[in-house]
Simulated scan of single mutants.
Amino acid sequence: MSGIDDATRTELEAAVFRRLVEHLRGRTDVQNIDLMNLAGFCRNCLSNWYLDAARARDLELTKDESREIVYGMPYDEWKARHQAEASPAQQAAFATSKPDH
């Protein structure tokens, strides 16, 4: 990208990440399995990538903490409120797509 310095690019990327996370927090109707089946990643993947980035910088962050950053609440609470049982069709699509994560 011409005309954008590294610091500004990082700030823009961070803003995009925050917007994506806020969007996913608002779309609790979209299940993780649907995201995995359609896009090959889900909220858990985002939280794992966040954790990987923190660890690459030698920052102390737990899996639960990275999930709370993405979900906006403890993961178990999010699951209890919003996660539905995967349908046979969703499970079959997941088995066929075999995401790498």
Results as ranks from 00 to 15, higher is better:
Ser2Glu: 00
Ser2Cys: 00
Ile4Gly: 06
Asp6Glu: 14
Ala7Gly: 01
Ala7Trp: 00
Ala7Met: 03
Ala7Arg: 07
Thr8Tyr: 01
Thr8Pro: 00
Thr8Gly: 02
Glu11Arg: 04
Glu11Ala: 14
Leu12Cys: 07
Leu12Glu: 07
Leu12Asp: 07
Glu13Tyr: 09
Glu13Pro: 00
Ala14Trp: 00
Ala14Ser: 15
Ala15Phe: 00
Ala15Ile: 00
Ala15Leu: 07
Val16Asp: 01
Phe17Thr: 03
Arg18Ser: 14
Arg18Asp: 09
Arg18Thr: 12
Arg19Gln: 13
Leu20Arg: 03
Leu20His: 05
Glu22Cys: 08
Glu22Met: 10
His23Thr: 15
His23Cys: 15
Leu24Pro: 08
Arg25Ile: 06
Arg25Ala: 05
Arg25Trp: 06
Arg27Asn: 14
Arg27Met: 12
Thr28Val: 08
Thr28Tyr: 08
Asp29Asn: 10
Asp29Val: 06
Asp29Lys: 02
Val30Gln: 03
Gln31Pro: 09
Ile33Trp: 03
Asp34Ala: 14
Met36Tyr: 13
Asn37Ser: 11
Asn37Thr: 11
Leu38Phe: 14
Leu38Lys: 15
Leu38Gly: 15
Ala39Lys: 15
Ala39Phe: 15
Gly40Tyr: 13
Phe41Tyr: 08
Cys42Ser: 11
Cys42Thr: 04
Arg43Val: 03
Arg43Trp: 04
Asn44Val: 02
Asn44Gly: 05
Leu46Phe: 03
Leu46Ile: 03
Leu46Ser: 03
Trp49Ser: 06
Trp49Ile: 01
Trp49Ala: 02
Trp49Gln: 05
Tyr50Gln: 02
Tyr50Gly: 06
Leu51His: 06
Leu51Arg: 01
Asp52Phe: 03
Ala53Ser: 11
Ala53Met: 09
Ala53Glu: 08
Ala54Ile: 02
Ala54Gln: 10
Asp58Arg: 12
Asp58Pro: 05
Leu59Ile: 13
Glu60Leu: 15
Glu60Cys: 05
Glu60Ala: 12
Leu61Phe: 05
Leu61Cys: 08
Thr62His: 12
Thr62Arg: 09
Thr62Lys: 09
Lys63Met: 05
Asp64Trp: 09
Asp64Thr: 13
Ser66Thr: 05
Ser66Pro: 02
Ser66Tyr: 04
Arg67Ala: 04
Ile69His: 06
Tyr71Cys: 02
Tyr71His: 13
Gly72Phe: 07
Gly72Thr: 02
Gly72Arg: 07
Pro74Met: 12
Pro74Asn: 14
Pro74Arg: 12
Pro74Ile: 13
Tyr75Lys: 06
Tyr75Thr: 03
Asp76Thr: 12
Trp78Lys: 01
Trp78Asn: 01
Lys79Trp: 06
Ala80Val: 09
Arg81His: 09
Arg81Val: 03
His82Tyr: 07
His82Phe: 05
Ala84Gln: 10
Ala84Met: 08
Glu85Val: 10
Ala86Thr: 01
Ser87Glu: 01
Gln91Thr: 10
Ala92Gly: 07
Ala92Pro: 08
Ala92Cys: 12
Ala92Met: 14
Ala93Phe: 07
Phe94Asp: 08
Ala95Pro: 04
Thr96Trp: 13
Thr96Asp: 13
Ser97Glu: 11
Lys98Cys: 10
Pro99Asn: 09
Asp100Val: 14
Asp100Gln: 11
Asp100His: 10
